[in-house]
Design a protein around this nucleic acid. Structure first.
Length: 593
RNA sequence: GGUUCCGUAGCUCAGUUGGAUAGAGCAUCAGAUUUCUAAUCUGACGGUCACAGGUUCGAGCCCUGUCGGAAUCACCA
């Protein structure tokens, strides 16, 4: 039961009884701030026009009515225009029992809506880096949050496996590779291919320098460099399905996919379907033809097709080149159409960096102009760059943070820390590895997901490994401690209640219940705002609340057996909700650490 | 120059539809362990919510402008 909605309904009943009607504005009920006495607060300012009385008088009239007529309301106080309502212990016990009884607490009822989430979308010429990590974690988490909101989710990946960039790697490998393979070199496939992408760039730069030394301008040199011409030639051969080039392309992409698969597995992300641009890049042409016929687009003298967006405050955008070949936008129009049709989507979320804000703005506009009303259900989940303390990441300057390296480092640090503290003494090597994986990766995921996606964020490796404060290890540790207490109780033959009987509760206990009761609302809000950060901060608050509670009471030493079991029951639910919330972030929580 | 986004404590970040005296963590300082896990807890210090107007009972949040920063504005993807 959502207590805000419950009280809102009761307040509305009260207003009808007291004043014979409802106010123009909706009744506002919110949580009472910590510094005031009470559980929920009714803001009475908007009710004054209806009551025709002062704020204090209106509030106390309403408070009197609610105390007398609503079960569970214990009392109230009035501060300025705020009516603070307190609920009694049985009210909170009932709420706790509702939490216990809900088999999938925090999972909202099915909506029947079909939503696609596209994320990751890597290029096949280099390994994944820190920016991809933000993308992958966001995509996966948002998909999980939307699932918890009752939607049917399809997670897809669109792999950019064609184009000049992959030809560069292929060419460099052919020229300098000497037949090196992942097997022969022991390198992860994506790293091996990335190595040759860098090798190409090096050779290319050397050629440019040479040409410029012989008197060529920089622009000219960039075009005339032999290795670049060769790469372009390779792309043409690929498009013509030349057997040698095509075979090499399949082989090297295969290496990359093996490497990506490992990284995805380590990150714990997955996809229901993978699209490849080599198979989709021709889509969308028919949409452009149709738009042309209907006068939505226009053709220039050289035969290229454009859309005029000047009325929308933008400029003209190319849709088909003069030679009839398509561009990125053409493909995205086509894939959007295909997906909405095939999956009968109610919404489509693209997790793509903010450097493509303009692209998606244009994409939606064009689809709208073509008359597709689903265009407005496209949502670009745009995220900002990840910067390092030393400045921006630049692949050319070698300041990128490699995804695999970072994951290894985080897990390694988790291991060092736990050894130092003697936390995992007595566990098997297998258990230690499992726990360190959870902790190291959890720290990384949480550090990134707790930040609002659209903000440029600073990634400080040192700080991300911090295990105190608003971090995953802190929350995981809280969970592990609860599990530890429950284990001890079980050993003593104590089982939590299936339904807690009526009894007294102390303030800290009702605070914990309040936090638990909030959870479904947080899930809903996170789903509406595509915001893992809301979940992350909720999990932290809950863990912190428990830590405060735990330190004031020695649960197992409580002499009143019924109270002791009630407390165990309560914290078991805290553990359950922590576990559930963290799962929405893709973070596992260990039972011991 | 156009478009979009960001600007909250020394640092990294929260702030759900406009609500009360602005919230954490890190850092700094002062405390707490008869233990069920101290990878913890309690307290102190720290703010002109970039700036200036406006809307209203009420603005960190909405509107306008200014300043500062980022992304983008390709017959690249």
């Amino acid at each position: 039961m959502n207590i805000e909605n419950f009280l809102t309904a009761e307040v509305e009943t009260a207003l009808k009884a007291l004043y014979g009607g409802l106010p123009e504005q909706a009744v506002q009920v919110q949580k009472t701030r910590k510094d005031f006495e009470g559980d929920l607060t009714v803001v009475v300012f908007p009710l004054l026009r209806l009551s025709r009385k002062g704020p204090e008088q209106t509030a106390s009239d309403l408070g009197d009515y609610l105390s007398a007529n609503v079960a569970g309301v214990k009392g109230y106080n009035v501060v300025k225009g705020f009516l603070n309502i307190s609920f009694d212990e049985n009210f909170w016990l009932s709420r706790l029992n509702e939490v216990i009884a809900a088999p999938d607490y925090g999972r909202l009822p099915a909506t029947g809506k079909s939503i696609m989430v596209e994320y990751s979308s890597p290029n096949t010429n280099k390994p994944l880096h820190l920016g991809h990590i933000r993308n992958n974690l966001l995509g996966y988490s948002v998909a999980e949050i939307l699932k918890a909101n009752g939607h049917t989710i399809t997670k897809v990946n669109l792999v950019n496996d064609r184009g000049i960039h992959i030809c560069k790697s292929m060419l460099a490998w052919k020229k300098f590779g000497g037949g090196e393979t992942p097997a022969s070199s022991g390198m992860k496939g994506d790293h091996l291919v990335g190595k040759y992408y860098v090798a190409f760039d090096k050779a290319y730069k050397a050629e440019i320098k040479e040409l410029m030394a012989s008197g060529m301008s920089e622009d000219e040199a960039k075009k005339e460099a032999p290795i670049m011409k060769e790469a372009s030639q390779m792309l043409r051969l690929w498009e013509a399905k030349d057997p040698e080039v095509y075979g090499m392309w399949e082989m090297m992409n295969g290496w990359v996919y093996e490497g990506f698969a490992k990284t995805y597995k380590a990150m714990g992300v997955d996809f229901d379907r993978t699209y490849y641009e080599s198979q989709t890049y021709l889509l969308g042409k028919s949409l452009v033809e149709e738009g042309l016929k209907r006068g939505v687009f226009f053709r220039k003298d050289d035969g290229s097709v454009w859309v005029d967006l000047t009325d929308d405050g933008l400029d003209q955008k190319l849709l088909l080149r003069g030679d009839g070949t398509s561009v990125y936008m053409t493909q995205d129009l086509g894939t959007a159409y295909q997906r909405f049709t095939e999956y009968k989507l109610d919404a489509h979320i693209y997790v793509v960096g903010n450097e493509q804000n303009y692209h998606f703005q244009v994409l939606k506009l064009i689809l709208g102009k073509l008359g597709y009303d689903w265009a407005e259900h496209i949502y670009h989940l745009s995220y900002g760059m990840v910067e390092l303390p030393e400045g921006k990441m630049k692949s050319r300057e070698g300041t990128v943070v490699d995804a695999d390296d970072l994951i290894d480092e985080m897990v390694g640090t988790a291991r060092e820390m736990s050894q130092e503290l003697g936390k995992l003494d007595g566990y098997s090597e297998e258990q230690v590895t499992e726990i360190c994986n959870m902790v190291g990766l959890g720290a990384l995921k949480y550090f990134i997901l707790k930040v609002d996606p659209k903000k440029t964020m600073l990634f400080d490796p040192k700080e991300s490994i911090d295990f105190n404060g608003n971090t995953a290890p802190f929350i995981q540790y809280t969970h592990a401690r609860i599990c530890s207490i429950l284990r001890k109780a079980e050993e003593a033959g104590i089982k939590p209640y299936a339904t807690v009987p009526a009894m007294g509760m102390v303030k800290d206990e009702t605070e914990l219940v309040k936090n638990l009761v909030d959870y479904p609302e947080v899930v809903r809000a996170a789903g509406e705002n595509y915001s893992p950060a809301l979940i992350a901060n909720y999990a932290y608050e809950l863990a912190k609340e428990f830590n405060g509670y735990y330190h004031d009471y020695s649960i197992l030493r409580e002499e009143n057996e019924a109270v002791k079991v009630m407390r165990l029951t309560l914290i078991a639910q805290v553990a359950r909700v922590i576990c559930s919330a963290m799962a929405l972030l893709g973070i596992s929580v260990p039972e011991r650490m």
